[in-house]
Write a protein that binds this DNA or RNA. Sequence first.
RNA 1: GCCAAAGUGGCGGAAUUGGUAGACGCGCACGACUCAAACUCGUGUUCCGCAAGGAGUGUGGGUUCGAUUCCCACCUUUGGUACCA
Length: 921
Amino acid sequence: MAEYNFREIEKRWQKSWADSTIFSAEEDPSKPKFYALDMFPYPSGAGLHVGHPLGYIASDIVSRYKRINGYNVLHPMGFDAFGLPAEQYAIQTGQHPAITTKENIQRYKEQLRNIGFSYDWSREVQTCDPAYYKWTQWIFMQLFNSYYDKDENKAIGINQLIQRLEKTGNKDVNAVCDENTPKISAKDWNAFSQPQKLDILNHYRLTYPAEAMVNWCPEMGTVLANDEVKDGFSERGGFPVERKLMKQWMMRITAYADRLLENLDSLDWSTSMKEMQGNWIGRSNGCELDFKVADQNLKLTAFTTRPDTIYGVTFVVLAPEHELVATLTTAEQKAEVEAYVQYATNRSERERMAEKNVSGVFTGSFVVNPFSGEKIPLWIADYVLAGYGTGVVMAVPSSDDRDFKFAKHFNLAIKCVIEGTENLENPTEIKKGIMINSDMLNGLESDQATLKAIDFAAKNNFGIPKINYRMRDAVFSRQRYWGEPVPVYYKEGIPYLIDEADLPLELPEIDEYKPTSEGEPPLARAQNWKYKGVYEYETTTMPGWAGSSWYFLRYMDANNEKLAVDPKKANYWGSVDLYIGGTEHATGHLLYSRFWNMFLYDIGVVNHEEPFKKLVNQGMIQGRSSIVYRDKKTNKFISAGLIDKYETVAMHVDVSMVKDDYLNLESFKNWRPDLAGAEFELEDGKYKCGYEVEKMSKRLYNVVNPDDIVESYGADTLRLYEMFLGPLEQSKPWDTNGIDGVFRFLKKVWNLFHDNDGNLNLSDEKPTPEEYKILHKTIKKTADDIDRLSFNTSVSGFMICVNELSALKCNKREILESLLIILSPFAPHISEELWQLSGKSDSILHATFPEFNDKYLVESSFEYPIMVNGKLRAKITFNIDESADNIKKEVLANPQIEKWLEGKDVKKFIVVPKRIINVVV
RNA sequence: GCCAAAGUGGCGGAAUUGGUAGACGCGCACGACUCAAACUCGUGUUCCGCAAGGAGUGUGGGUUCGAUUCCCACCUUUGGUACCA
């Protein structure tokens, strides 16, 4: 009577779980904790497609597995709800982004519920909720009130800095600050006006206002962070981005550069992920060297990582934006230099990148090599960046590719300083070796020469060791509406934090979501929006990454109205034990989160320095588009196998009209009016489509919605199939074609419990050794596979297990109940249903993962593959403890083997116990 | 250019420590059931060959009794990054 009715079963259990508190987590010191986290989604209008749940399913399996292994599991979900698409939509339609966002979240939650995730929804967070962003603003305030002390190597309250300034000025303060921070004495400080004092403090604060060169995207009307710009275009939308000097809030992430870099070692992340962050931070060890300007009382400081090549310096190059460009240009060169600077600074980042040609201009001035005393020309070129190092490069054309190209182009001197490069067409091919033509450094190895050069420069007061970073402080302002307001107001042009008691500072209502006619951000439109009714608020909002930089902490204590997170709870849950999400967040979210978490660690909010102990990047699920081919001459559609005979045009068709690559002709004709009269050239009476693996996108008609899969196969099938598709971390195309196999598997599971008439049929008989063996083999495999997140192989393990049990017609309760428990993290609905049908009153969620027992797998004999010279020739079964001599005797006497020996001498006889036997002749 | 990861049947993929390459699933072929189709079940399915046998994990070489696995060189694909001195 009972068929596998997944629709009814899944609805029922999903409701039952939602009505209970079965997935809510409470701190419980008696149990080990496990924190499994998904990167929370941005709720877009398009809903989830089949690629999104991949990681969620994996983390859900681990969560459920850990739960039945006695762990206290925290497995929450929420929404990264501030963002551009909702705002763009608001600009077009006038609809408040909060409304669209709310609708989209509703839709997402329903889609997620359909898949049967074990989320603790009581801890849901939404970044756009004032109850949440109150604390995002609070963290901003803590950053504003802190500076980074290098001696303590941590963030410290700004009040302590003020006390030191009052007593001794800043000469002994070893802190991270702006390059241009003035040296002040206690006397200076105490004589300063309040605005002057605040200005000094801004040079130290971990979040600070600054005039900064930013990535301005005119199309979007906002600035973007470095990680939001790709090849001169915005990552979202693909609009052109230009450089612009603007007043911005900045985050002093560079203060943490070293710790962010060094801690990478301790993290269980993929090497490529660590590599990406390492490159992004880009620490380079080197030194600064001073070059005196010839005949003037001026010096230029260059940063170099290769002071060993100092004797190979044949010119020095300034960035076009360098402040001394005008001073150092001679009268004769003035016109040429001005024209070049004009040209270089007006070009956008994008143009500069597209431009591969070498460009530059001579200043007319000369500088002096501090080591050799040689006079060398000073140039200006845009391959030198104002923002990196000092904006001055000592050019060594014999060791550096760019310097080499530049010297070649302008016919400048090239001097080789490394042995073996003298006769090379391109001396930069050899980067390190024994120094030559280098006076005091001659004969030294590059690395030793580097040390000696730095030492010499330091002793003679024209150089110091220095570490530079590629990473910049992060721009924190967005000229947009749909983000967290910055909790700052202005009094006489000076920014002040609002009172903590006035948090949250809520987004005001405005008439339109566009910038004002004066180009002010949308918040400038707000009427009567003033602090204490008097002072203007900051009108930029926080960027998308603000709310996502600490949401993993809020989950630990999501409903606390008094604190961002109770340190006691944060200490209990600690770092995330498994974080699953996309690789696209390598240099954005994952870096900013580490930064904020580290800061909160410094100020004592949490007791773990790193937020994500283990990180796994799920691969992208690509679309598998279906293609039909229209004959150019007759307008007939030609089946894929026959297109060689015609000249055809390819056309994407909706994948919902295609099954197993065969096109449903009726649906196709009904798809669009112009196709109603379509004719076809068929193969074997069917139309076979071609396919293409590409991005999943509406435009390519290849989007597959999980709701549709759940409707036709059920959530358990979807979960298993997504896992079965291949390794979690690998990108792969979604191909619905294979899903029947997984569905069949679940039906076989169902059939194990039922007789041919569909009646429940379980036996209480003692299982046979063979049945135990099948079960315990699968228990071990499942546990091992989950530990290494190899879910595709555990699914095939289940299939093997069920195939073998079916062959034995096994319906032993003892075996099948254990099977249900190990299957339950993967296919929770069917497992729960069969568990209850078999007479259990308690949920399978409260069951315990069966203990693996080795004794069922012990074999008394093994069928050895016998190889002769590495080629498989026979198989013979021996007892496990058979002596090597006996094995040898029997193998050599075997007629199958004898044939291959042909009486030749046996050189070697190798027996690898329980593996293989190899005879070498 | 540089850095990282990966190349295995018609397809997705397996082989966890150097030990039977192609598990499991899809697809395909044949068969059973059926009036018929679908479902389901069974058999087969890396390639060449009737077979015996041979070849085979991107290419070429090496180490080893034995290599998808280790080493060297190269090719291709994907991702990251790009004047970072």
